[in-house]
Structures are given as structure tokens and as C-alpha cells.
């Protein structure tokens, strides 16, 4: 069950925080209606504005404002918030140490009917290799609600890879406490570790039922902050289970799978398998079709788990 659209949470938190903190500004590039920030313009007409379809300029304006002590949020769809403005993120934001929060919506295959041009298979890879930037991908409404104030309080650039619509709740415990720099262990287990991010966390939760029936005790860890990755959490779990599956809505090159492989390769080589887009471009389709097409369903996670366990 989904409690609220993620973009709704985005707007709610900003509405509250902008009242408390006059430094926060919200800049859009003609996608405010899609990303949920349109309403802010009525409440904060001077601090929520549009720069038109000009993402490079949006990034630069935000960087300039950040040098004056402001905390700008800039938004677009993931490909245009990252690969299109890669150099602006690198030079004007990251190198210049500007406190800008970059929000990309519709990551990976979730762009659905907008198709290949709007599907970022490479955004995490692009941003991850730029120094001095945090990458966070929300899982559900509650996690994102807790993450936003921490992102605002963090003094430095953050890329938020935001699925914008309603998605099943995962973090429902009343005492759930989120930490931007610590991985979330959703279920402990001993046979295999599934590191998952974004919409693939919900897919992993579906896979758990089948795994249980197969007598496989899986550990599920959400790596919501892909950079800097929680190395300790990755190493500790891999040492315990000695078999790893990584599930992400991104090219298996450059994303979370690569990040986990880098840690494991250096610290405790472990058999692993990556679930994600296998170095292909996107295409139009509804999510269930695309998940089948790109082998990103709960079934594919189960198969990967069986494979890594057999190779232990």
C-alpha cells in the first residue's frame, strides 16, 4: 500500500522547510507541474521560480545563489538533471563547492511512456564519478519524508534520484529512524544478501515470499545513499552471507551494482550478481512490461539469488 506520492512529500517538506528557512529556493525548468513544486510559487513567489527549458542555466543560477548562502533545489527528469548538465554539475556545483540539491525524477525505466530519451540508464554512473557529491535514492514516502530535512541540513551538493509517484510503503515501523549515511537493513538473513535501491526494494520485498518458500533466508539491505556508500554495512553483510545480489533501476554498469562490487573487490571478494538494465537503452512501455523486458522483476531476483548461492 502506498501512503502518498513521493512528489507530494517533496512539496510538503519544502513548504514546511521554506517557511522556517529563508535560504531555501526552488528552481524548475518547465517541469514544476510534473515534479510537484508548482504550488510553492503561490506561497513563496520570490523563492520558487522557473528558468524555462534551460537546465544548464538552472544549474549555474543555483550555484551562484549557493555562493550567497542560499540552498537551491533544482529539478528535472533524471537524464536532463544529470547527463545533460554533467559539466555544470562538475564545475559550477561540485568543484566550486556549491550547496545545491539536484532532483531528478522518473529514474531508469520509470519514465515509462516517455521512452528512451527520458530514461536515464546512466545518471548514477555520471554523477557517482564526480567528486564531492552525495547520491540518494528514496524508497518510500516515510523514508523520503525523513530524508529531506537531513539533505537540507547537509552542507554540500546532493543528487536525489526521485521516483515521483505513489509506491508501496516499506518503512512502516513507528520507530523507523532514517540516517542519510547509513544503509537500512530491512530484514536480517544468513544465506544471501540482497542490496537494493529505489523501486527495486519493493521488488525485493515481493521476492522474499518465494525465497522463504524455497527455504532461503535472505538479508535485505537498502542502500539508499549510493554515494558515499555505507562500506561497513556492505562488508559486514557480505562476510556473513558470502553471496550477494544487487538490484537497481539503472544500468548494471556504473550504478549501485558497480559501487558494491568496488567495495567487495577491495575488502572481501564475494560471488555476486547484478539485477538492473543490462547495458541497453530504454524504450516506451508501462512499468510491468519494462520490468519483464529488462529482467527486473521479483522472479529475476529469485533466480539471481539461487545462482549466487549455488556458486558459494
Amino acid at each position: 500500500m502506498a501512503s502518498k506520492e513521493i512528489r507530494g512529500i517533496f512539496c510538503d517538506v519544502l513548504t514546511e522547510e521554506m517557511a522556517k528557512d529563508k535560504r531555501i529556493v526552488v528552481i524548475d525548468a518547465d517541469l514544476a507541474k510534473c515534479n510537484g513544486t508548482m504550488g510553492l510559487r503561490k506561497i513563496y513567489p520570490d523563492r520558487a521560480f522557473d528558468v524555462g527549458i534551460a537546465e544548464q542555466n538552472m544549474a549555474g543560477i543555483a550555484a551562484g545563489m549557493a555562493t550567497c548562502g542560499m540552498i537551491p533545489f533544482i529539478s528535472s527528469f533524471t537524464p536532463f538533471a544529470t547527463r545533460r548538465i554533467c559539466d555544470q554539475i562538475s564545475v559550477s556545483i561540485a568543484l566550486a563547492k556549491c550547496n545545491v540539491k539536484i532532483v531528478g525524477s522518473d529514474p531508469g525505466i520509470t519514465a515509462q511512456l516517455n521512452g528512451a530519451t527520458h530514461m536515464s540508464v546512466e545518471d548514477v554512473g555520471v554523477v557517482r564519478s564526480i567528486p564531492n557529491i552525495v547520491i540518494y535514492e528514496p524508497v518510500d514516502a516515510e523514508q523520503f519524508r525523513q530524508a529531506m530535512p537531513q539533505i537540507i541540513n547537509y552542507d554540500g551538493p546532493v543528487y536525489i534520484r526521485m521516483f515521483r509517484k505513489a509506491i508501496d510503503d516499506v518503512f512502516t515501523a513507528p520507530d523507523y529512524k532514517f540516517d542519510l549515511f547509513k544503509a537500512d537493513t530491512i530484514k536480517e538473513g544468513k544465506d544471501v544478501t540482497i542490496f537494493a535501491t529505489g523501486i527495486m526494494v519493493q521488488e525485493t520485498m515481493k521476492a522474499l515470499k518465494t525465497l522463504e518458500e524455497l527455504g532461503i533466508d535472505a538479508e535485505v539491505i537498502n542502500i539508499h545513499t549510493i554515494k558515499p556508500i555505507d562500506r561497513e554495512a556492505v562488508i559486514a553483510s557480505a562476510k556473513k552471507t558470502r553471496a550477494v545480489v544487487v538490484a537497481e533501476n539503472h544500468n548494471i554498469i556504473g550504478g549501485l551494482g558497480s559501487a558494491v562490487a568496488e567495495v567487495l573487490g577491495e575488502e572481501c571478494p564475494t560471488i555476486m550478481k547484478r539485477i538492473g538494465i543490462k547495458d541497453r537503452f530504454g524504450q516506451v512501455g508501462k512499468l510491468p512490461f519494462l520490468q519483464e523486458e529488462y529482467e527486473m522483476t521479483d522472479k529475476h531476483i529469485v533466480e539471481a539469488v539461487k545462482e549466487v548461492i549455488s556458486k558459494k
Binding site: G60, T67, V91, S92
Partner: peptide, 25 residues
């Protein structure tokens, strides 16, 4: 030095941002 520059075309956007910030502040 108020802004990092060198990758051409970017500094003027930052200047726009600074001028906008100065208006808000």
C-alpha cells in the same frame, strides 16, 4: 574570487544566480 570558472559559458549563469539572491536577500 567569487566563482569558479573556466568551462566557458557557466560563469554568467552563476552571476545571474548571485544577482537573484541579492534581490531575495
Amino acid at each position: 574570487i567569487d566563482m569558479t570558472a573556466g568551462s566557458l559559458g557557466q560563469g554568467i549563469s552563476a552571476a545571474v544566480g548571485m544577482a537573484k539572491a541579492s534581490k531575495i536577500l
